[in-house]
């Protein structure tokens, strides 16, 4: 019966309208097994959501709880002994704020450097009239497959005297070849006539890039800024390697040192309570919350750009 109706409707009027009709019909004629599966499916997916969210909620709850409840391991997703004291302790540590400001500065400068270099490179290799284009593309692709490795890079950055400067963070990873490939494919899909018309009107290559190409590429540029900015915000290892003073650390290294049980806010906590490890568990939680907060705020807006970036990259890369 059902099959007959479906075939009839799809023969009568093929196209998107029939698809809708058909979907509705199958929805009505779901078997018992399918209904059970639908329920189980939702339960399994809710479980996946719960597992994903639990660590976040746990950290948030710990950041708002008092030490003695964490000590007994009782804090799950509800704060126990609700208080903001730990936030006050962390906020009273000047190093925390210096490091937080460093993160902002490093992120802005690194992202700016990355964007300038990546845009120049991606635009140049997107132009079919560039002689030696294959060579330049190959030069970038090779670095995706084989890298010099940690030790020679470390030796080089030290040799260049970049240690303890922002350039040790901003320069060694300035260009992400993946991002360049995404930009390149975007520029390649832009109508060539626009650039030719601009050239006929007397615009130089610089002029064409600045006045024609870039204004039309705001979508991909915004996506790339997000890619680089999130990566820079989250980065800790270059700073950990190349920065020797706590005044130069980004907040991620501050947090890393808390986790590894080194100085910092722990001292501030020790004065408030003698139980060192306990305060530090609270403080870790608060520092984690404060570090991740900006990412969580922008996350709903940036998520779809990242998804589209993955798709673009998978087509070309």
């Amino acid at each position: 019966m059902v099959i007959d109706a479906q075939t009839a409707s799809s023969i009568a009027a093929p196209g998107p309208v029939t698809t809708k009709v058909r979907r509705k019909r199958t929805a009505m004629s779901r078997t018992r097994g399918e209904k059970i599966f639908a329920v189980v499916n939702v339960v399994v997916l809710l479980l996946a959501v719960a597992i994903t969210l639990y660590p976040f909620l746990n950290v948030l709850a710990q950041s708002l709880s008092s030490e003695k409840y964490i000590d007994f391991g009782d804090v799950t997703i509800w704060p126990l002994g609700f208080n903001f004291d730990t936030y006050k302790i962390v906020a009273s540590d000047p190093t925390f704020w210096i490091n937080y400001r460093n993160t902002v500065v490093y992120t802005v400068v690194s992202t700016a450097v990355s964007m300038v270099l990546s845009t120049m490179f991606a635009y140049a290799i997107s132009r079919k009239d560039l002689r030696g284009r294959g060579f330049f593309i190959g030069m970038a692709l090779v670095t995706m497959l084989y890298s010099g490795g940690l030790i020679p890079t470390y030796v080089l950055v030290n040799g260049l005297g970049l240690t303890n400067t922002i350039w040790a963070i901003a320069l060694p990873n300035a260009i992400s070849v993946f991002n360049v490939l995404v930009m390149k494919s975007f520029f390649e899909n832009m109508p060539r006539e626009l650039e030719e018309a601009a050239a006929i009107d007397g615009l130089s290559t610089y002029g064409t890039l600045l006045r024609i190409v870039l204004p039309l590429s705001k979508a991909v540029l915004a996506t790339m800024v997000l890619f680089y900015a999130v990566a820079n915000w989250n980065s800790w290892f270059p700073a950990f390697l190349y920065m020797d003073h706590s005044n130069l650390y980004p907040v991620t290294v501050y947090l890393r040192n808390l986790i590894a049980g080194a100085t910092g806010a722990q001292d501030a906590g020790a004065s408030a309570d003698s139980n060192l490890t306990q305060i530090s568990a609270n403080i870790k939680a608060v520092t984690m919350v404060l570090t991740v907060l900006p990412i969580l705020f922008v996350y709903p807006f940036i998520q779809r750009y990242f998804v589209s970036g993955v798709m673009l990259g998978s087509v070309k890369g």
Partner: peptide, 10 residues
Amino acid sequence: FLSVVIVGGM
């Protein structure tokens, strides 16, 4: 979207 430091801490 999380920093590996956050993941490690968690």
